[in-house]
Design a protein around this nucleic acid. Structure first.
Lengths: 395, 395
DNA sequence: CATGTTTGTTAGTAGACCTTCCTTACTAAA
DNA sequence: TTTAGTAAGGAAGGTCTACTAACAAACATG
């Protein structure tokens, strides 16, 4: 590159630094990244030879051997003997992640009635399961109950526990601090740091809807290019993944779609439905029609036909709210997590057709709107993934 | 870490690999990253000492000296003498990016009537400006016109040109291939690769709305935590940045919010407005009420009061469509780019109040909805940023 | 004038990956 | 049985990267 003239230098007109990388990169970061790639390969593909891993990652066999050596030293990976399949050349020595020799403890705080907990293997199999009723406890009392459940679960583990993951409702920041969780009476509570210190185990905390999305992406079949997992329970929340990463938002409140107005006072005046008052203090929120209690209330005592019509009506409202989001993010799919008897019928079908008729063909026609693959343990599995991701870099 | 029992290894239940890192990391990548950090610091903060850069980046002075040395050898950076301000210690030698010794060529294809082009310095100052009328040309003819304009602009440059950036309407993939741009009659056209070869200059292409968003983030004041730049012209498009990165979406069609239905046939039946037919073939799209031609049509011949009411009505429709997006992504701000006489009044105010009344307070109240800081050259400036980002890693 | 501070450089060290070459172990064909 | 070919895994040596430690230069201050 050649240059001419005198150097003239000036700052850009303003200080916008939105997309500027802000953290330095060291060679050891590269090492950690590559280590995670090896571990992720073993996690997703199962036992493999070092040469397999080298081909898959693009690293050389030498480098992979070194990384695998480290992992074996740490005990996370072990050799499994020679591959039986007869091919030419020296037979491969399989190595695999010791997914059943370590455990993860996962806790789900989604439910207002009780705290769910489980001891799981690294592949998400539940080994032990416990739950305790909340009985209206909030704030400090709820925290104590949570801590005791965690202690009980840790005591149940007969193998080393690499970490503890918690799925909590509310706004959680990236450090696992609960900014606000009204239902549990928690405000500005450094939950992850607190429990990490008290339990002497690494603790990771994330929003329950985001956690469920994580579970769906790891164990389910959700597409990373653009997906939204809509969790429908006592409330309505969403976890969104675009371009391979969870969306967090400005105050880590992304996905809080339950309190968007979907029933208008004026347009509903003539029709059969009035906007219902919501727990958030406003009226006509998506949650007032789509939450499980609202759906049960709405359909109870109706004939199947009437019930289907009511569900379709809610599906239409959902579709109207989803259409702008699907368009703006060019989503590949929307997954519904919740009771299939309510969701997987007229509601889902009407929501899909509504989104399709309200968006461009290229967006809407490719869209999938289906039930989430994970059952009610989705949030628990996601909490386990939180630990895998945080402790091992696997996800 | 200790282990117990026999190794038992199994693959995860499925092959979900949404969030798995897929590319290896090498030490040289770290070097490139750090180099970009140094360059970005100089670009945004202006001339600085090596020690300043070290403090800002977290790297040591030694490392920064090495990186700056490389950049000086390449000619991108130069020493500017000692800092005049008298402080204790050895006076600092300032180094700065030679932003005026290199040029960027930027082209904006947003307009249906003509192609805009400019030769700019690295800080976005326009040195030369040219435009050519399209006169209805599409497909190959439009491409030839574009290529000729690029050649003319390159010939006008009296300093080395580091690259050429193009803002085009339509769906553009990350390699600068125009997947589809109906207005220009381009389908599956590898525009960046084609022009890079023909013009012998690095060419970068991106969607015009995304480009404008880039310009706004680099030269304007948009927040990287979550912002949307809504470009309102002959069409309506959006560029969205969440968590510091542009949202691309499944088919690189993110931001195509202009064709979301906002006028319903049934609810409008009683009112004064019928859903208008859109260029996309459907009816009631946002574009049919919010595009500049639609707004001009709607307000022409009205009294100021009537005009304000009409604009407020459009603002309300916009607000209804924005509310779910703002909620789902927890956006910090929405910027409007377009004619201020139409947008920066009742339309903007009503849109903002509508979003606020339809979203949670924590989301809506912190939201800013204001005019974009960049003028009509926004897309050009963004196209220049495309080059800075692509060639220098600066953005 | 002595002292302390800040800058930028030199020299040495540790880590990370690469390429090249070697041994081991197997299949396939003469 | 022998020979050739293929593939896995590891060892040696080289390059690149950034760090720490130590130092000289240049200035402000008491």
């Amino acid at each position: 590159m050649t240059t001419t003239g005198q150097p003239q230098v000036r700052a850009a007109r303003t200080v916008g630094r939105a997309l500027r990388p802000t953290t330095k990169a060291l060679p050891e970061h590269a090492r950690a990244h590559n280590r995670s790639m090896v571990l992720a390969h073993l996690f997703h593909e199962g036992p493999s030879s070092r040469a397999d891993i080298a081909r898959s990652t693009g690293l050389t066999r030498v480098t992979v051997s070194g990384l695998v050596g480290d992992l074996i030293t740490e005990g996370l990976v072990s050799e499994l003997g020679v591959r039986s399949e007869g091919k030419v050349g020296k037979p491969a020595t399989l190595v695999g992640m010791r997914t059943s020799d370590f455990l993860v403890v996962a806790v789900d705080l989604t439910d207002d009635e009780r705290i769910l907990g489980a001891v799981m293997t690294l592949v998400g199999d539940v080994v032990e399961r416990r739950s305790v009723p909340l009985e209206g406890r909030v704030g400090e009392a709820a925290l104590e109950l949570l801590e005791q459940l965690c202690r009980d679960l840790l005591a149940l583990a007969d193998r080393p526990v690499i970490g503890l993951g918690i799925a909590s409702p509310g706004v959680i920041d990236t450090d696992g601090r609960v900014v606000q969780a009204p239902n549990r009476g928690w405000y500005d509570l450094p939950l992850a740091a607190l429990l990490t210190e008290r339990l002497e185990v690494p603790v990771h905390v994330a929003n329950d809807a985001n956690t469920r999305a994580l579970g769906e992406f790891t164990y389910g079949e959700a597409a990373g290019s653009g997906s939204m997992v809509l969790t429908i329970g006592e409330g309505v929340g969403a976890g969104i993944v675009v371009d391979g990463a969870l969306v967090l938002g400005r105050h880590n409140a992304a996905g809080e779609i339950g309190h968007v107005t979907v029933v208008d006072a004026e347009s509903a005046a003539g029709s059969d439905e009035e906007p219902a008052v919501c727990a958030c203090g406003r009226a006509g929120c998506l949650e007032t029609v789509l939450s499980v209690p609202a759906l049960r209330r709405r359909t109870s005592g109706l004939t199947p036909e009437e019930s289907d019509a009511a569900l379709a009506s809610v599906g239409r409202k959902l579709g109207i709210a989803l259409a702008p989001v699907v368009s703006a993010l060019d989503l590949a799919e929307v997954l519904l997590a919740g009771p299939p008897d309510l969701l997987d019928g007229p509601l889902r079908e009407t929501a899909l057709s509504t989104v399709r008729e309200r968006t461009m063909p290229v967006i809407g026609h490719g869209l999938a709107l289906r039930m989430a693959a994970m059952d009610e343990d989705g949030a628990l599995a996601g909490a386990a993934v939180l630990v895998l991701s945080g402790q091992l870099g696997v996800s």
